[in-house]
Nucleic acid binder design. Structure first.
Length: 205
DNA sequence: AATCGTATCAACCGCACACCT
DNA sequence: AAGGTGTGCGGTTGATACGAT
């Protein structure tokens, strides 16, 4: 069978989104929701974009609750452990990391984690660097889409970890509250089988 | 100060699956 | 049951910022 293209390529814009496009998309979705289909949405919102492109932009960038900025050491650990279990199932991994998108996790894996010495087969770090100190901020403020990147909240993110040793064999259930700078708190209950091997050190001062 | 190489990440592409008729 | 359509996912690319020389 022959599939029709998802959009008329010659009439759709490509490349970085402008603030106006972001505004139009956000406004439309806030007012009407996603509606009948992503395919119809750009026309209804008056956007010269492919439905797929709109979906990606919304999910990865505009959707409320999307966390920006560097991954915390806890998040890096979770990604490595989840990747060991799930493989390249980025969307499944994203589903277990509140506020992170599959695209961002994938990028982080391909850049930070692999580049910093995580063996993709054994999932063991060649060095412990990425688990002991957060990556230095790359002060790059966005580039392409002239405008729209929201300031990172990561530097202001704090975590509290509560561990409960249920017996002498140190089976550990962890509830992790992540408090963001905006004041909202996300609570993550870790799966014991993940064996995050998390250790946190108090600041020395 | 200019140039080059590298890192980062937003966005695109194509495929596969699910759902509908 | 089969064909058509929409959506989601993973891989990849390209633009840009940054650091090194």
């Amino acid at each position: 069978m022959v599939r029709s293209p998802c959009c008329e390529k010659e009439h759709t814009r490509k490349g970085p989104w402008t603030r106006e496009e972001d505004d139009s998309l956000t406004r439309h979705i806030m007012f009407h929701g996603i509606g009948r289909s992503w395919r119809a949405l750009p026309r209804e919102a008056g956007l010269n974009r492919c439905g797929k492109s709109c979906r990606l932009r919304w999910i990865n960038y505009l959707q409320p609750g999307v966390k920006r900025g560097n991954f915390t050491l806890l998040e890096n650990r979770m990604i490595v452990n989840l990747h060991a279990q799930l493989g390249n199932k980025w969307s499944s991994i994203a589903g277990r990391l509140p506020g992170r998108t599959d695209n961002e996790i994938k990028n982080n894996w391909n850049t930070n984690l692999l580049a910093n010495g995580i063996d993709p087969r054994t999932h063991k770090p060649l060095s412990t660097a990425i688990f002991t100190t957060p990556a230095p901020p790359n002060n790059k403020i966005n580039s392409s889409s002239d405008t729209t990147r929201t300031p990172t909240t990561d530097s202001a993110t704090s975590m509290s970890v509560v561990t409960t040793n249920s017996n002498s064999t140190t089976t550990t259930m962890m509830k992790i509250g992540i408090q963001t700078s905006s004041g909202s708190e996300v609570e993550v209950e870790s799966c014991p089988e993940l064996n995050l091997e998390l250790s946190l050190a108090l600041p020395s001062h």
